[in-house]
Write a protein that binds this DNA or RNA. Structure first.
Lengths: 229, 229
DNA sequence: GACAAGCAGATTGTCGACAATCTAACAAGA
DNA sequence: TCTTGTTAGATTGTCGACAATCTGCTTGTC
């Protein structure tokens, strides 16, 4: 018997598809922070009744990218500078932990997958597809979490990723300029292939990809704009 | 004008109450791991239609204590030894981080609240109310997360707490014997009041309250029982 | 007896309609 | 003018019924 892994069949509930659609719209910034989601309007656009739509929205609320106020509505979360700082600082700690756990488990398959994802980032960069660039960069970054063999850690990372992706997308949209052409992941990948775990951890802690500094300055801009209202 | 803080009004949707009811039932072990939740039966018992019940269940799925398989049902998550180990090891890392962030923010109000929660644990212990003892112990433990001034960290902790509470409740149920009478939190509280942050972190990392060792041995028992099927 | 097809019951997924609540505009009174 | 009460419209929360899907049993065939 060949050990062929078929994997699970796709979820074919409307709910699951709605979740995917909404999530994508939020994470790419098509739905802006603070924006209200009108159930009737969306359900008509999607040709779906409100029941599965509402269930989908509950999931995204719990996922942390929507927020719900009873009898008032469901809204895309607002993004403050503090949120970004908080998410980033937690991400640093988790990175360190993920690298520590992944380290002894690295094997050829890990290195191959690392290269594959790195290549995907470079390709998206060449194609100037900013949305895809963010996606692939986060997937590259997520490999250490998938490899760390800790399901709770992975879940936590995935929740965090949603927000990070949203933050970066907003940032890109705001500055509205082409993404950096040079490859900022070269060092990261090289360190993960190397033999100095501490160095890899230090790098993760100090220099996150996708220039975090810029993201922060964007966040501070948001803060100022918000305080004026 | 007296600066009286009224705080937000209680959510009075059926959905929110159902969430609370179900969560409590799961975390106290009244609903056992792996058990299926029959929508019709539960909605009749609660005198509620299936719509809000289903929405509540979606929330708990996303919260990580239920799992859903399309057209098959929604089930209480199974608990494996690995889950417990994973949750615990992540908890160690988060504790360290939370202590680091809380440390410079400690003030009189912090110490007062620390004592208050510690007292609550002792009281539950004296009353031999095991469920409440677990709850209060986790609340005591959660103070450093509430104080760390990092919303993402707090959310992560709350998710983790759900599972930890469930694990401990299962453990207590399984061994079915009175809880330890002596106070295991004395050292923890003292260290948090002291001036040696490293020592507090080390304590959190090495000796978690509510004897984790026992919990693990229980988890290993689960593993063995499961492998027999 | 083994096995596939098909049927019946139970359960989940989805729908359309109704009830409860909120918001904003307007009117009445101090 | 400011406050308070009222009302209409829109939106969310909930309900009961129907459709889609799964499960286990029965039946028929070899």
């Amino acid at each position: 018997m060949a050990k062929l892994d078929f994997g699970p069949i796709a979820d074919t509930t409307r709910r699951a598809e709605i979740v995917a659609l909404l999530r994508r719209a939020i994470l790419t910034g098509q739905l802006e922070p603070g924006q209200k989601l009108n159930e009737l309007r969306i359900s008509e656009q999607m040709r779906v009744s409100r029941a599965p739509l509402r269930e989908a929205m509950r999931e995204l609320v719990q996922e942390g990218i929507l927020t719900s106020i009873p009898y008032a509505g469901t809204f895309v979360i607002e993004v403050t500078a503090k949120d970004i700082i908080d998410a980033y600082s937690l991400n640093q700690v988790l990175d360190e932990f993920a690298i520590e756990r992944t380290w002894p488990l690295r094997d050829q398959r890990f290195f191959d997958e690392l290269d594959r994802r790195h290549e995907a980032v470079k390709q998206a960069t060449r194609a100037k597809d900013t949305t895809r660039q963010i996606e692939t960069a986060l997937q590259l970054h997520g490999l250490i979490y998938e490899w760390a063999d800790n399901s709770v850690l992975l879940e936590t990372w995935q929740r965090l990723t949603s927000r990070l992706q949203m933050y970066f997308a907003l940032h890109q949209r705001a500055r509205n300029e082409p993404v950096p052409a040079e490859d900022v992941h070269e060092t990261y990948v090289a360190l993960l292939k190397g033999s100095d775990m501490r160095a890899a951890q230090r790098h993760a802690r100090e220099h996150i990809d996708l220039d975090f500094e810029e993201l922060l300055s964007y966040a501070r801009g948001l803060e100022k704009r918000a305080s004026k209202n």
